[in-house]
Design a protein around this nucleic acid. Structure first.
Length: 592
RNA sequence: GGUGGCAUAGCUCAGCUGGAUAGAGCACCUGCCUUCUAAGCAGGCGGUCCUAGGUUCGAAUCCUAGUGCCAUCACCA
C-alpha cells in the first residue's frame, strides 16, 4: 500500500465532494526541510478546475484529509502548498514491510523478454585505457540495473579482432619483435601488442617523412608508405586464410585476450556471451541483398548500395561498397540479427558506445526498423561523453592515454596510503589489507565515473587524485563499514524486537523516507539507463544516515525497543547501500 | 555550412513529469574525537542557473533565436 496512491484518490474525492469538480491528477512532492510536514500537495494546478483562493482550497482539502485518512495527522498551508504531516505509525509499519523484503527494490525478471547489453568491445591491438573504463563501468552497471528493474539481461561484447589496425601490430612485431613474447618480456600480452602498434605508427611516420623529403606529395606518401602497403597486403592474406598470417594473428590475439582477462577481472566486469568480429564481419550482406529486393535500399550506377534517409532528416548512407565488400554498417546490421537468432528471447538491445558514434547508431536503428524487425523498436544507444585529459583527447598512438591497469593500481596505492595514515587496521594481514585497498581504490574510481551523467564529458586530471572524502565511493563504503561495526556489537546484545515502539525520532523518519525511494530509483535509473541516479540516491541515503548516526545514539540508547529499532534501521540502510553499490559494481567492506 | 550533445558556486557535480528562499562535495573559515570507526558530524562563506525573447498563476527545467565548447556529416573504423 503506497500512501501516495491513497492520497491521490482521497484528494480527488475531496475536490469532488467539496468543490464538485473533477481533478485529473494530483501533484506531490516531498515537503522541504524548512517546513513542517512529510508530503506536500501543490494546490496551484487545481485552480484550473476549482476557482478560488489556493490557501483556502488547501485548508479545506487538508481538513478533509485529516478527517478521512488515518495516516494524516496534521497539515499546514503556505501559499499554494498543502503540507501534510504523516503519522509515525505509518512510517513504522512501512519500515517493517521494507525490512521484511529481502529483495527490496528489485523486481523479479520477466523471463520472456530479454535485453542484450553490449559494452567494452575493444580493438585487440592496444591495451584498455580510461575511456574503456568508463565504457565498461557504464555498460556493466546499466546491465545490473536493468536486471534489478525486472529485465532478463545478456551482457555481451564484440571483440574487434580483425582489420587493418590488427595487421599493423602484427607486421611491426614481425619486423621489429625478434620473437618477443609476453612471458619472455615480462609484459601483459595486451601491453606488448600495443607497443608494436605504436612501433608501427612510428615507422610509418618516418617513412612518410622520408618520402615527402624525396619530393613525394603528402597525400600520396601517406597512402604509399611501404609499411602501410605491406600491412594492407597482410590484411588481404588474412582474409584469404593465409596459414602463416592466421597463425600469427591467433598467437597475438591470444596474448591480448589474456591481458584483457586480467584487466576485466580487476575491474570486476563480466560477459555472458562473446562475439568476434572475425566471425561476424561477413554478416549482413545477404540482409542487404534482401533489403534491396524489398526496396529498402537502392543501387547506384557503380554498384554500391545505399539507403535514403533524407525523409528522416538524415543523408544517404552506404551499406555496401561498389566492389561488393561490407562497411561497418553492414556488419552491425548482420550482427544485430545474428544476436537475436542466437538468443530468441532478446527483444531489445543496448549499445554502450561513445557519443562520437551517435550518427552511426541513429542510422543503424533506422535501417533495422525499415527492414521490419520487431525488436528494432527497443534499441538504445547508451551514448556517453568522452573522457578527456587537461591536455586534450587521449590518443593511443601518441602515448597520451591513461592506462586502465596503471590507473587501477594507482588508485589502490593511494587508498593504501590513506588507510595506513589512519591506522585503523593494524590487526589485518597483508593480504587482507591489500584486498581492502583495492576495494576502496576501485570504489573511489568507479563512483567518480559513474556518479556523472553518462551524456556529460569527463575531464580527468591525473595530477589531482580522485577524492576519498565527501561525495565519493570511499565515503559510502566507510558508512557501510561503520554500520557493520555496530551490527557486530549488537549481535552480542541479543536484542528483542521493536513492536512496542510508537514514536520516531526526526532523523529516523527521514531515513525511512529515504529508504522508501529505493525501488523508484532503480526503475528510474533503468528507464534512463543512468547509474548516476543510483549513485546519487546512495549518497543521499548515506548522508542522511551519517547525520542520524552522529546525532542519535544507537547502542547507547536505554529504551530497548528504540535500540532494537535503530539497529534494525541501520542494518536495512547498510543492506540498501550494499545492494545499490552492487548495481554500480562496487564492493563494500566490513571494516575500513 | 547541416545535424546532435553540453553550458548551474573558484573547481567537480545534483536538480524527477515546470512549483516554495536553486542543492551537495572539494577548496576556504568556525566548532565537535575520555561516548557506537573524525574517510565523519554541525555551521559559515560562495550563484546575471551562457545571453535575449516567448509560453505560464509559476521557468535552471518547456519553445524560439543567438553565443561558446565538443562530436558528427567519407565506398574510415
Amino acid at each position: 500500500m503506497n500512501i501516495q496512491n491513497v492520497l491521490e484518490t482521497k484528494v480527488k474525492e475531496a475536490v469532488s465532494t467539496l468543490f464538485k469538480a473533477e481533478l485529473p491528477s494530483v501533484e506531490f512532492q516531498p515537503t522541504r526541510k524548512d517546513f513542517e510536514g512529510d508530503i506536500t500537495i501543490v494546490v496551484f494546478p487545481m485552480l484550473r478546475v476549482v476557482k478560488g483562493n489556493p490557501v483556502q482550497i488547501g485548508n479545506d482539502i487538508g481538513a478533509y484529509l485529516v478527517a478521512q485518512v488515518e495516516e494524516i495527522i496534521g497539515f499546514n498551508v503556505i501559499k499554494g502548498f498543502l503540507n501534510l504531516v504523516i503519522s509515525d505509525a505509518y512510517y513504522l509499519a512501512d519500515f517493517k514491510t521494507i525490512d521484511a523484503n529481502t529483495t527490496f527494490g528489485h523486481v523479479a525478471p520477466d523471463t520472456a523478454n530479454a535485453v542484450m547489453v553490449e559494452y567494452s568491445s575493444p580493438n585487440t591491438n592496444k591495451p584498455l585505457h580510461l575511456g574503456h573504463i568508463r565504457n565498461n563501468l557504464l555498460g556493466y552497471s546499466v546491465a545490473e540495473i536493468l536486471k534489478a528493474s525486472g529485465k532478463k539481461v545478456y551482457k555481451t561484447q564484440i571483440i574487434n579482432d580483425r582489420g587493418i589496425h590488427i595487421c599493423k601490430s602484427m607486421l611491426a612485431w614481425q619486423k621489429f619483435g625478434k620473437g618477443e613474447t609476453p612471458e619472455g618480456a615480462g609484459l601483459k600480452g595486451d601491453k606488448l601488442v600495443g607497443n608494436y602498434y605504436v612501433a608501427f605508427d612510428k615507422a610509418y611516420k618516418e617513412e612518410v617523412a622520408t618520402l615527402i623529403a624525396n619530393g613525394t606529395a603528402k597525400e600520396v606518401a601517406e597512402k604509399e608508405a611501404p609499411i602501410l602497403v605491406e600491412a594492407q597486403q597482410m590484411l588481404l592474406k588474412w582474409e584469404a586464410g593465409d596459414e602463416d598470417v592466421v597463425a600469427l594473428w591467433k598467437t597475438m590475439n591470444q596474448w591480448v585476450y589474456a591481458g584483457f582477462e586480467v584487466t576485466y577481472k580487476n575491474l570486476g566486469v563480466d560477459f555472458d556471451t562473446l562475439y568476434y568480429e572475425s566471425d561476424t564481419y561477413l554478416l549482413g550482406k545477404d540482409v542487404v541483398a534482401a533489403g534491396l529486393e524489398k526496396g529498402v535500399f537502392f543501387k547506384k550506377e557503380d554498384g554500391s548500395v545505399w539507403i535514403d534517409l533524407t525523409d528522416e532528416g538524415l543523408d544517404e548512407k552506404i551499406v555496401l561498397r561498389s566492389d561488393g565488400t561490407a562497411v561497418y554498417m553492414t556488419q552491425d546490421i548482420g550482427t544485430a540479427i545474428q544476436r537475436v537468432k542466437d538468443h530468441p528471447d532478446v527483444s531489445g538491445m543496448v549499445y554502450t558506445v561513445g557519443n562520437e558514434q551517435d550518427y552511426h547508431f541513429k542510422v543503424l536503428f533506422l535501417i533495422l526498423k525499415k527492414l521490419g524487425f520487431s525488436w528494432s523498436e527497443n534499441l538504445f544507444h547508451l551514448s556517453y561523453g568522452m573522457v578527456d585529459l587537461p591536455s586534450g583527447k587521449m590518443k593511443s598512438r601518441e602515448g597520451t592515454v591513461v592506462d586502465a591497469d596503471d590507473l587501477m593500481q594507482d588508485m589502490t596505492t593511494t587508498a593504501g596510503e590513506i588507510s595506513q595514515e589512519l591506522g585503523k587496521l593494524e590487526d589485518y594481514s597483508a593480504d587482507e589489507k591489500q584486498d581492502l585497498y583495492k576495494m576502496i581504490g576501485l570504489g573511489a574510481l568507479k563512483y567518480y565515473i559513474l556518479k556523472v551523467d553518462p551524456k556529460k564529458r569527463i575531464l580527468f586530471n591525473p595530477e589531482e587524485s580522485v577524492d576519498f572524502q565527501g561525495n565519493t565511493g570511499p565515503f559510502i563504503q566507510y558508512t557501510y563499514a561503520r554500520i557493520q561495526s555496530i551490527l557486530r556489537k549488537a549481535d552480542e546484545l541479543k536484542l528483542n524486537g521493536f513492536d512496542g515502539l510508537k514514536e520516531l525520532h526526526a532523523k529516523e523518519k527521514e531515513l525511512i523516507k529515504q529508504l522508501q525511494g529505493y525501488p523508484e530509483t532503480i526503475q528510474l535509473a533503468a528507464a534512463n539507463y543512468s547509474p548516476a541516479l543510483v549513485a546519487n540516491y546512495t549518497y543521499d541515503l548515506v548522508k542522511e544516515f551519517n547525520s542520524f548516526y552522529q546525532n542519535v545514539s544507537i547502542l547507547g540508547e536505554e529504551d530497548a525497543a528504540k535500540k532494537a529499532f535503530r539497529v534494525q534501521l541501520s542494518k536495512k540502510v547498510s543492506d540498501v547501500i550494499q545492494s545499490s553499490f552492487k548495481l554500480l559494481g562496487i564492493e563494500v567492506p566490513q571494516r575500513m
